[in-house]
Amino acid sequence: MKLDELTKGVFKYNPIFYLVLGLCPLLAVSTRVDNALGMSLGVFFVLVSSNVIISLFRHWIPSQVRIPCFIVVIASFVTIVELFMHGYAPELYGRLGIYLPLIVVNCIILGRVEAFASKKPVFDSFLDAIGMSIGFTLGIVGIAVCREVLSTGKIAIFGYTLVPTFTQSPSVMMILPPGAFLTIGVIMALINYRSIRKEGR
């Protein structure tokens, strides 16, 4: 089933909660929902283009130098994202800082290219990349929602308030590094709890 290639990344093999890949940008950029969305957009573009390109040329790349080739392709797309984001979304570019060029070492991308795109046809790789990006987006935005609500008491995306202020004394810790670890720990425990209960039945 073609559809499986798409949905497996979203739920069954979610890159964040199941494969535990790409943690660095996940925790660093999930301070605010709009940063998380910007990051997801970057990862989406790089993952989809690299997966498609690598899959397209998979027969021409000698296996001895495949990793350097993959890295060059990924790094090029990351730089393209950097350049366009600098020009057209300068504020977001400033806020993502070094985590934007660091997409290049995001294990999700190299991992998917190596494990999937270098072996499978173009269309499957395309679907796989889209599924994985959606999975990543769900994870990072989910964590960002928890952190932003708890640390500022509201959610504002690109200036529009989605959830109005409901508390005057939010927990500042959630926006600082410890809050990131805490959030992902609790979310993973909840996922485990669900699957343990399923097993028990």
Partner: peptide
């Protein structure tokens, strides 16, 4: 320009 901890 700056990107300090949001909210703080």
């Amino acid at each position: 320009s700056q990107s300090e901890t949001p909210g703080l």
